[in-house]
Design a binder for these strands. Sequence first.
DNA 1: CCTCGTGTAACCCGCCACGTTACAATCAGA
DNA 2: TCTGATTGTAACGTGGCGGGTTACACGAGG
Lengths: 107, 107
Amino acid sequence: MPNNWLNNRKRRPTHPGEILREDVLPAAGLTQDKLASLLGVSRRTISEILHERRPVTTDMAHRLARAFGTSPEMWLGLQQDVDLWDTHHARRKEYERIKRVATSKAA
Amino acid sequence: MPNNWLNNRKRRPTHPGEILREDVLPAAGLTQDKLASLLGVSRRTISEILHERRPVTTDMAHRLARAFGTSPEMWLGLQQDVDLWDTHHARRKEYERIKRVATSKAA
DNA sequence: CCTCGTGTAACCCGCCACGTTACAATCAGA
DNA sequence: TCTGATTGTAACGTGGCGGGTTACACGAGG
């Protein structure tokens, strides 16, 4: 019950970049450049994620998880919520046209 | 504790296509062609997902959720596990080189 | 033999994560 | 105030890949 159904959410879920920008990075006291080289990606990639202009991919989720001792699922999960929300709001009209399939069989 | 850590899993997580192929579709008694038109995608897309050769995207997750009365998160979650597993096994050497960041600040 | 359901090859398209290079702007410290 | 560090971001290029369409082959039943 406390579960999902982002369909009804009014606000866009928190982008992982926000967590990174507002909590993780400040706590670690790292510059974007430092973090980039630690993770083995470009500075630009870090910058765009912090600005929530690029998603956290499975690859980035693993890198972040390694660096900050969290689970990759945590980062990717945040991203998924955002992605689902975005897609839903972009195509909800189309989705509404899809009819429920009857689970007729095996009755 | 019972949670994630697919890093240690020996087997590849269940691909959503397997659920679709072995449970959902048979129960619904639908042909691939029927399902495709119901969801508004091509037959090929359905076929490749059933064969686990293509991921369930956020878009497909929403479509499946509509058609089968489930949550999009369920479908996408399955896919994420597979994606994380695949990425991890493809690049674990590289990830192991990433050092843990000290949460030095705010002590 | 013909049809239905299905696998899949071939071809095309558009999107996008990511890298590199480079430049401008901001800011802190000497 | 000059300077170096940090950061935003434009420009350009690349590879990967989700997805559509068309078309052909094959197996199972009628």
